[in-house]
Simulated assay, not measured.
Amino acid sequence: MQVSVESGEGLVKRLLVNLPADKVNELVDAKLKEAARTVRMDGFRPGKVPMRVVKQRYGEQVKKDAYGELIQSSYYEAVTQENLKPVGDPSIELREDEADGGLAYTATFEVMPEIEVADLTALEIKRPVTEVVDADIDNMIEKLRQQRTEWTDVDRGAQNDDRVTLDFTGLMDGEAFEGGTASDIP
């Protein structure tokens, strides 16, 4: 397996992979033999279909399956070999290979950026200095009181800052109308 890496724009990498013809043909033949055992065809007993007929009828599909399996396994092997850290799934594009019958493809993907931690010993940190005055404390206490208000029932008329809950019925010409009634409205 021949692997080469090209850098694209930004974090994009292109992985060019060439697989030898003998590896491709070996897997295709193995897949054809596996298919021949399970193929059912009129005029032949199950598993007794001649390899020539299986290859003629199912050869292209078996070849595509073998290519998919080879691409998947060789991609992960090539990424590990080249110490690349892909971020997502690659975009695979088959390339025309020489007449030797091998498989060649280009995988395009983004990689994790390399981050270098700078020397922080020379940096100086300035701490902000703040001053809390009595007015700030009073404002915060008032906000906390408003957030944690608890309501209790009282037996007197409503006054400012009280919460009132109403039940009402709307009347039109002395009769209640649809949608004009509500209860427990704050």
Rank of each mutant, 00 (worst) to 15 (best):
Q72C: 08
M41F: 03
Q72V: 11
D161N: 14
D184L: 15
R148W: 00
D167S: 01
D42I: 05
V87L: 09
Y105H: 12
T169L: 12
D184V: 15
D29V: 11
S4C: 13
Q159K: 15
L94V: 04
S73T: 05
P90E: 04
A118Y: 12
T108W: 05
D134H: 05
V3P: 09
K143D: 07
D153V: 10
P186D: 13
T152H: 15
M172S: 13
R145T: 08
N18D: 01
T106Y: 09
G8L: 02
T152D: 14
A99Q: 01
F177R: 15
Q146H: 13
E60F: 02
N160E: 15
V133Q: 10
A30Y: 01
A21P: 08
E114L: 05
L32D: 04
D136E: 00
K64V: 13
F109K: 04
V132D: 09
A118V: 10
G68F: 06
E93H: 13
V117H: 05
E9F: 05
E150F: 01
E6S: 02
V53L: 13
L120C: 01
L19F: 05
A78N: 00
V133P: 00
L144Y: 14
G88S: 00
D161S: 11
Y105A: 05
Q56K: 09
E98G: 11
E124M: 01
R14D: 02
G8H: 01
R95D: 09
L32W: 02
P86I: 02
A118K: 13
R127E: 08
A99H: 10
V28I: 00
I92V: 10
R14S: 07
Y75W: 12
I141F: 02
T38R: 09
D136Q: 04
L171S: 09
T165N: 13
T149S: 12
R163V: 02
D134A: 12
